[in-house]
């Protein structure tokens, strides 16, 4: 029965899968707040994975506390470290989302202006000229590319936030 002793609980595996799947889905969103929740979910999913890697749950992780088999303490130490790190980065993303909201009135990840500008100039066949008309338009366009994450019509709701 050695193998079955080490087999982790199926529930943990399913929970881990669900956490990571939903987390990845949220990571693909444009809104930073959703990404943040995604990061937290994926992080917790991976923490569970590490625990699963440590074998079956239940036994104490200390030598000599009972006569039974001891469970591996290392995954628990690893998870503890990972949790602390995730906490710190969650705080950082939260601050960044807030700052983005302060600056732009929303927390969505914007398109890269420079990419659009280069593409525009290449289209017009003036990559090597020194004129620079494309810049302003590209910046405007990049700022306007948004996902519809609000039900309310855009302009009014944004004014409301400020």
């Amino acid at each position: 029965m050695i193998v079955s002793d080490n087999t982790p609980s199926m529930v943990l595996v399913v929970v881990m899968g669900a956490l990571i799947a939903t987390g990845v889905y949220l990571l693909l969103e444009r809104s930073l707040t959703r990404v943040l929740i995604g990061v937290a979910l994926v992080g917790n999913g991976v923490n569970l994975l590490i625990l699963i890697a440590g074998g079956a749950a239940g036994a104490p992780p200390l030598i000599g506390s009972s006569d039974e088999a001891m469970s591996d303490p290392l995954p628990q130490a690893l998870v503890l470290t990972a949790i602390v790190i995730t906490l710190g980065f969650t705080a950082f993303i939260l601050a960044m989302a807030y700052r983005s909201w302060q600056l732009h009135g929303h927390d969505e990840v914007q398109d890269d202006v420079e990419d659009r500008r280069i593409a525009r100039r290449a289209e017009q066949g003036e990559l090597d000229t020194r004129s620079d008309e494309a810049t302003a338009n590209a910046a405007l366009e990049a700022a306007q590319v948004r996902d519809e994450t609000e039900d309310v019509p855009d302009a009014t709701s944004k004014e409301g936030h400020r």
Partner: peptide, 14 residues
């Protein structure tokens, strides 16, 4: 030394 972890043949618990 990693006693309980590996579901490998060498896992030697009990």
């Amino acid at each position: 030394d990693a006693t309980t972890t590996a579901p490998e043949p060498g896992g030697e618990d009990e």
